[in-house]
Nucleic acid binder design. Structure first.
Length: 300
DNA sequence: TGCGTTGTTTCACC
DNA sequence: CGGTGAAACAACGC
């Protein structure tokens, strides 16, 4: 599922592969993806040139000449694949359609053709994503409306103090807390599991029960997991099964496989309605503070 | 074929 | 107002 690393990789593809190119033709096969677009027709892009690309949280923004910005959210299964006339391809996001397969795929809903024959294919097998075309001057307000918190990594990375403060106010499972985009932006189900595994924290631990040391490890874990995902251009997960590269992802999508750190089989449980993968040995539940003998406190 | 899937919004409630 | 938990929603593949 496209999270910060996958969307950031898409942004970089737009910059390296599309910047300076001018739109010649647009094909929209699924108009409902523009249902909440201020400018209803993608045809408005014709004749305009890509001049930049931005990202905030999991939202991609492609800036065009003529003060137009195309805002894209990949949700569960969005994918951008850019194909050049010489056969070169650059793909980011969900692994379906296959990056080296035939395009357009049946899940390819938008095609943007550029003047030199380069094509940008937007696919989304789940059709949960959306496109919004708007005057560039409206972008800031549109982003503000999401209420995103600081980013999980990079220049706008959340500070340790801010993370500590936010977690101390929440009694919900720490995993649920870091999935909250208003607390820290860009972390989704994959990277939440990875960050908690790195930090050796049980995902169901109430956020406000973490020690200062644990919060610091989590802060580092979030950064680390996102950077690692970015280094690989995103994770490959198909039907809840991970296809790890260089040990990443370590736990997400790897139920029953040995923990890379200790060899204990990875378990899958549900935390806050989300499928959650963790190592039962590295990520132990915290001991209940008082009330000793009774059955273990139910968390999550 | 009904269920699982996740990011986001909405809502009732404390 | 802010935190919580649950439900709703999008639509597909298995």
């Amino acid at each position: 599922m496209p999270e910060l690393p996958e969307v950031e990789t898409s942004r970089r593809i737009v910059l390296t592969d599309l910047e300076g190119h001018t739109v010649e033709r647009v094909v929209v096969r699924l108009p409902k993806l523009f249902r909440s677009s201020e400018i209803p027709s993608a045809e408005s892009l014709i004749g305009h040139t890509v001049i930049g690309a931005r990202r905030r949280a999991k939202v991609l923004m492609i800036d065009f000449s003529g003060d137009l910005t195309l805002m894209v959210h990949f949700k569960l299964a969005g994918q951008l694949s850019v194909h050049h006339p010489d056969g070169r391809r650059a793909t980011a996001g969900h692994p379906v359609p296959k990056p080296d397969g035939e395009y357009p795929h049946k899940a390819t809903h938008v095609e943007i053709w550029f003047d030199d024959g380069t094509v940008a294919y937007f696919s989304d097998i789940r059709q949960f994503g959306w496109f919004r075309l708007m005057p560039s001057e409206n972008v800031d307000a549109a982003i503000d409306a999401f209420g995103f918190g600081p980013e999980g990594t990079g220049d706008e990375r959340i500070s340790l103090e801010a993370l500590k403060k936010a977690l101390s106010r929440r009694s919900i499972p720490v995993k649920t807390a870091i999935l909250d985009q208003s607390l820290v932006a860009g972390v989704g189900n994959i990277y939440a599991d990875e960050a908690l595994w790195f930090a050796r924290i049980f995902p169901g631990t109430p956020a406000n029960q973490l020690s200062a040391v644990a919060v610091r490890r989590l802060w580092e874990g979030i950064d680390h997991a996102l950077i690692q995902g970015l280094a690989q251009g995103g994770a490959t997960i198909i039907h809840q099964k991970a296809y790890p590269v260089d040990g990443f992802p370590a736990v997400h999508g790897r139920e029953g496989e040995p923990c890379p750190r200790c060899g204990t089989p990875i378990q899958k449980i549900e935390i806050g309605t989300r499928g959650t993968y963790f190592c039962p040995k590295c990520q132990k539940r915290p001991r209940p503070k008082n009330g000793g003998s009774a059955s273990g406190t139910e968390i999550g």
